[in-house]
Amino acid sequence: MAAAAAAGAGPEMVRGQVFDVGPRYTNLSYIGEGAYGMVCSAYDNVNKVRVAIKKISPFEHQTYCQRTLREIKILLRFRHENIIGINDIIRAPTIEQMKDVYIVQDLMETDLYKLLKTQHLSNDHICYFLYQILRGLKYIHSANVLHRDLKPSNLLLNTTCDLKICDFGLARVADPDHDHTGFLTEYVATRWYRAPEIMLNSKGYTKSIDIWSVGCILAEMLSNRPIFPGKHYLDQLNHILGILGSPSQEDLNCIINLKARNYLLSLPHKNKVPWNRLFPNADSKALDLLDKMLTFNPHKRIEVEQALAHPYLEQYYDPSDEPIAEAPFKFDMELDDLPKEKLKELIFEETARFQPGYRS
């Protein structure tokens, strides 16, 4: 834990890192770190609560700039109880001085990944967590956004079992017609939660990839272990087919990539493993919904509104309290091709509203 900075004593240090967030945020305490930044909790002297502050230093890398800009653009436009918001952003007053960006968010005690390492969940908890994931996802999908990296560590939890989806750095506007060349190379989302079509096709992607990830998360809540822990690309596919069985001819016809289709045709026939054999203690309604989410063919996979209306979630289902976005989200430009200098300018502009004396 960093010592509390005395008023006016300059930035606090946390594990050798400068955290320049005073005077409003003090009493910093280390939480963890990701690929390009550290997260601390801090005391907000204005709202009198502890908050989470993520320090991001992305400006050396085009990919990190892209992810940072995506996350900020999306989260500043989203407003939903099951999606983490941005409360404040701290950065230098000029673009030349801006080396880091500090993002202030609600402090959540833990995440689903940490929880599943230590606790076996009751059916009631599984049901409530799944409902909140789908409630947040309904809003995301209504904005025409794909999260693309749903996994237990991106689901934040607090002691009252509130759940918030975080990390929109890989999110995209849904565009089933656009052929994202190089899709697989830039697709760094965790393999275990990846839909089979991501490994088999490169053309376009749809909201059904997020539903697949939610199915993987439900299976993990039922058993405290990942359902498809593939060691590499082909191993991942083999794990999936080992449980779902061989795809039907109709399902194979959806695979545009001939090499991928021929690979699947070359494999020995596998039978589907019954879900109640894998999860003998699970609620039968939970397994019915799991089956509809972990469907090989993305066109037959359940959609988020149908999933919310499934009998497993009937005690929570309330369409009048499951809000959607006001308007579909649009990125003005494809960020993939922009140089990091341009992305830095866009991050600077996007964060201006939090600067003292800002006038829109």
Score class of each variant (00 low, 15 high):
7 A>Q: 12
8 G>S: 02
8 G>K: 02
13 M>D: 04
15 R>M: 15
15 R>Q: 10
18 V>R: 06
20 D>M: 01
20 D>P: 11
21 V>C: 12
22 G>E: 12
23 P>R: 08
24 R>N: 05
26 T>E: 04
28 L>E: 03
30 Y>W: 00
34 G>K: 01
35 A>T: 15
36 Y>M: 15
36 Y>N: 15
36 Y>H: 15
37 G>F: 04
37 G>N: 14
45 N>H: 12
46 V>Y: 09
46 V>M: 10
49 V>K: 12
51 V>Y: 09
53 I>H: 12
53 I>A: 07
53 I>K: 03
55 K>F: 01
56 I>R: 14
57 S>W: 08
57 S>I: 13
62 Q>H: 15
62 Q>M: 14
65 C>F: 14
70 R>M: 09
72 I>G: 00
72 I>K: 08
73 K>D: 12
78 F>P: 05
79 R>G: 08
85 G>A: 13
87 N>Y: 15
88 D>E: 14
90 I>Y: 04
91 R>V: 13
97 Q>E: 14
101 V>M: 15
101 V>P: 03
105 Q>R: 14
106 D>G: 00
106 D>L: 01
112 L>P: 06
112 L>Y: 04
113 Y>M: 07
120 H>W: 10
121 L>V: 13
123 N>F: 09
123 N>K: 15
125 H>P: 00
127 C>F: 13
131 Y>E: 01
134 L>S: 10
134 L>E: 07
135 R>A: 08
136 G>D: 01
140 I>H: 09
142 S>H: 06
142 S>K: 07
143 A>D: 13
147 H>F: 10
153 S>R: 13
153 S>V: 06
155 L>F: 06
156 L>M: 12
157 L>P: 11
159 T>W: 03
161 C>G: 00
162 D>L: 06
166 C>E: 06
168 F>I: 14
168 F>S: 07
170 L>W: 08
170 L>I: 09
172 R>D: 07
176 P>H: 11
176 P>I: 06
177 D>F: 06
178 H>W: 03
180 H>W: 11
181 T>F: 04
184 L>C: 11
184 L>G: 10
186 E>C: 02
187 Y>W: 04
190 T>C: 01
192 W>K: 04
192 W>D: 02
192 W>L: 15
195 A>G: 05
196 P>N: 10
197 E>T: 08
198 I>L: 10
199 M>G: 05
201 N>I: 15
210 D>V: 14
212 W>A: 03
217 I>L: 08
218 L>C: 08
219 A>Q: 10
220 E>C: 05
221 M>S: 08
224 N>W: 05
227 I>N: 13
227 I>Y: 04
228 F>M: 02
228 F>P: 00
229 P>Y: 02
229 P>F: 05
229 P>H: 14
229 P>M: 06
230 G>S: 12
231 K>Q: 07
234 L>T: 07
235 D>H: 09
235 D>S: 06
238 N>Y: 14
241 L>H: 10
244 L>S: 08
244 L>N: 03
249 Q>S: 01
249 Q>E: 01
250 E>V: 13
252 L>S: 09
252 L>G: 06
252 L>T: 11
254 C>W: 08
254 C>T: 09
255 I>F: 14
255 I>T: 00
258 L>W: 06
258 L>F: 03
260 A>C: 08
260 A>E: 06
263 Y>T: 12
266 S>Y: 07
267 L>E: 02
268 P>A: 00
269 H>M: 07
270 K>P: 02
271 N>D: 02
272 K>F: 04
279 F>W: 03
281 N>I: 15
281 N>K: 13
284 S>A: 11
284 S>E: 09
284 S>D: 03
285 K>N: 15
286 A>G: 05
287 L>H: 13
292 K>W: 04
294 L>E: 06
295 T>Q: 06
297 N>S: 13
299 H>W: 04
299 H>V: 09
300 K>S: 04
301 R>H: 00
305 E>R: 06
314 E>C: 04
314 E>G: 02
314 E>T: 02
316 Y>M: 03
316 Y>E: 02
316 Y>W: 03
317 Y>K: 07
318 D>S: 04
319 P>N: 04
320 S>A: 09
320 S>H: 01
321 D>C: 05
321 D>K: 00
322 E>Q: 04
327 A>K: 06
334 E>N: 12
336 D>A: 12
337 D>C: 04
339 P>Q: 15
342 K>R: 01
345 E>V: 14
346 L>K: 11
347 I>T: 01
350 E>F: 04
352 A>Y: 03
354 F>N: 09
355 Q>E: 05
358 Y>H: 12
